[in-house]
Amino acid sequence: MPDALQQLQLDIAAMLRADELFAGVQVIVSRPRDAEDATLIQSNIDNALAGLVQVETGETFKGGLAVIIMMSEGEVPAPNVPGPQLELVQTVRVIENPLVNMGDDGTQITAEQGALNVLSALHHWNPGYGVLTADSRNALKEVNLEGKVSYDVRFRRDAGITPRDFVQRPLITIGGSDATITCGTSGAAIYYTLDGSTPTSGGLSGQLYTAPVDVTGLTGSTLRAAAFKTGLRGSDISAKQL
């Protein structure tokens, strides 16, 4: 099943393909997963603007105009709020090749008309998981593409991310020549380093704490510790100068 970002692209594409103004216009989802996908997507865009068949399906569309659903982006307007509270930024790009578009086999829909139609079709549209609104700061922007007329139409949607519970930060206690490390989360595994590197889960970096650490002769070194437990976010790192 597509994740939230992919689903938004797919839903917008379906909405615009069903719009009567875009009948015969290629609406393309830009979501490459490898070099072959990227080449195919670009070929479909180029063919749409040239009035050729769609590479992937062999369908014939009117030429000279393409509507591209770009990959979603995200911003965090309130970084101090848990989650974080993500604001998705979705761009729909309308590209026109005027030489083909205004010919006999063209769509006869200008880039300006297409961009305004995208704006009116999607502003305050709810695909079932949140309302899209036109970007108040930059809803419509010209894109400089040589030989083409192009606009980006931008929308925003709130999309909070469910906060993950996290492991409590370990406590480092120095007593004589030993360093004791404890964690308030039951069942958490503690990893530590003595060379200033980052302790990570599974021993990729650091050692599993099983007993007090002998720190004799390590004056000036830094002991760092972090705790981990399956299903929880790893703890913040504790550090102690020896």
Rank of each mutant, 00 (worst) to 15 (best):
V76A: 09
Q7S: 13
E96L: 02
D19Q: 01
S72P: 03
D46M: 10
A66K: 05
T91D: 12
L16K: 05
D34T: 07
S43Q: 13
V94H: 12
N80E: 08
A78L: 09
A50T: 06
L65Y: 02
D34L: 13
V27M: 10
N101Q: 07
D34N: 01
L16V: 00
N80I: 08
L65S: 10
P84I: 02
G74D: 12
T57P: 03
V55R: 14
D34M: 11
V81K: 12
V89F: 04
D19T: 00
A66G: 04
V89I: 10
A18F: 04
Q42I: 06
F61P: 04
L8D: 01
Q7G: 12
V67M: 11
G63E: 11
L49M: 03
N80M: 11
G58C: 09
A35F: 14
E59C: 10
F61E: 02
E20A: 14
R17C: 05
V89A: 13
S43P: 07
Q42M: 15
P79Q: 01
G64T: 01
I41N: 02
Q85A: 13
A78D: 13
L49D: 08
N47T: 07
V92D: 15
D19A: 07
F22E: 07
L86W: 06
A35Y: 15
L86T: 06
N80W: 06
I68K: 01
L52N: 15
G63C: 02
P79V: 00
A50Y: 05
V100R: 11
Q9G: 10
R17G: 03
G24V: 01
L99S: 15
A35I: 15
A48N: 04
A66H: 07
V27P: 15
V67N: 08
L86H: 02
A13N: 05
P84K: 01
S30D: 15
G51T: 02
S72W: 01
M70L: 06
G103S: 06
T60C: 11
A18S: 15
G64N: 05
V81L: 12
I68T: 05
A38T: 11
G103A: 00
P32W: 00
I41S: 01
Q42H: 12
V27L: 07
A66M: 04
V100F: 02
D46Q: 12
V55T: 13
I28G: 03
T91V: 13
T39W: 10
D46F: 03
E75Y: 05
E73I: 04
A18R: 12
V27W: 07
A18T: 01
G64W: 00
G24W: 05
E20S: 14
I95D: 12
E59L: 14
V25R: 10
S72F: 07
L8G: 02
V29C: 15
V92F: 02
D37V: 13
G74A: 13
Q26W: 05
Q42W: 06
A78P: 05
N97Q: 12
I69D: 14
A38M: 07
V89C: 11
A66I: 00
A35H: 13
R31Y: 15
N44L: 08
D11N: 10
E20H: 10
K62R: 05
A48W: 00
R93W: 04
V25F: 03
F61S: 02
M102R: 14
A50F: 05
G58Q: 14
L8P: 04
N101A: 03
N97P: 12
N97V: 02
Q85N: 13
L49R: 14
E87C: 08
E73H: 03
